[in-house]
Measured scan of single mutants.
Amino acid sequence: SSYVCVECNFLTKRYDALSEHNLKYHPGEENFKLTMVKRNNQTIFEQTIN
């Protein structure tokens, strides 16, 4: 599966890399929402900020 930060167009295969991205680029933000999307037999988790 892949993880994408929709706000930044940041894409990674690792959830911990997304967490690091959030700490660096969205410090103090807590209203993240992950949406699971299936595309071409791949699972993509799209992160948006509410």
Rank of each mutant, 00 (worst) to 15 (best):
T12M: 13
I49G: 05
R14V: 15
E29Y: 03
V6P: 03
N50L: 08
H26C: 00
H26N: 00
N41Q: 12
N50M: 05
I49T: 09
L11Q: 15
Q42D: 14
K38M: 06
I44D: 12
L11C: 12
N31K: 09
T12E: 13
E7S: 10
S19R: 10
G28F: 04
N40A: 11
G28H: 12
C8W: 00
E20A: 05
F10E: 06
N31G: 12
F10G: 02
P27E: 11
N50Q: 05
T43G: 10
H26T: 01
N31L: 04
D16K: 14
S19F: 04
V37C: 11
H21P: 01
T12G: 07
E20P: 06
E29P: 04
F10R: 06
P27H: 07
E20S: 14
S19H: 02
E20N: 02
H21N: 00
N22R: 03
N50A: 11
K38W: 03
Q42H: 07
Q47S: 06
V4F: 13
H26F: 03
L18Q: 02
C8S: 01
C5L: 01
K38E: 08
G28L: 06
Y3T: 08
Y25C: 05
F10Y: 04
A17K: 13
E7W: 03
L18E: 00
L23K: 05
E20G: 08
A17D: 15
E30H: 10
N9A: 08
S2H: 06
R39V: 09
F10V: 03
L34N: 05
I49F: 11
Y25W: 05
N31P: 08
N22P: 02
I44N: 07
Y25F: 14
K13M: 09
A17I: 13
T12S: 04
R14L: 15
I49H: 03
F10S: 07
E7K: 14
E46Y: 04
Y25Q: 15
N40S: 09
E20I: 05
R39P: 09
R39M: 10
N31E: 07
M36Y: 05
E30N: 05
E46S: 06
C5Y: 01
H26G: 00
S1C: 06
N50I: 03
N9P: 11
E29L: 06
K33E: 12
K33F: 07
N31M: 05
Q42M: 11
N41M: 07
M36E: 15
N9I: 07
Q47E: 01
E29A: 10
M36W: 05
V6F: 08
S1F: 01
K13G: 10
I44S: 13
G28S: 14
N22G: 01
D16M: 08
T12H: 12
Y3F: 11
I44L: 14
N50H: 08
K33L: 04
V4I: 12
E7I: 10
N9Y: 04
Y3R: 02
V37I: 12
A17W: 08
V6A: 08
E20Q: 10
I49E: 13
N9E: 04
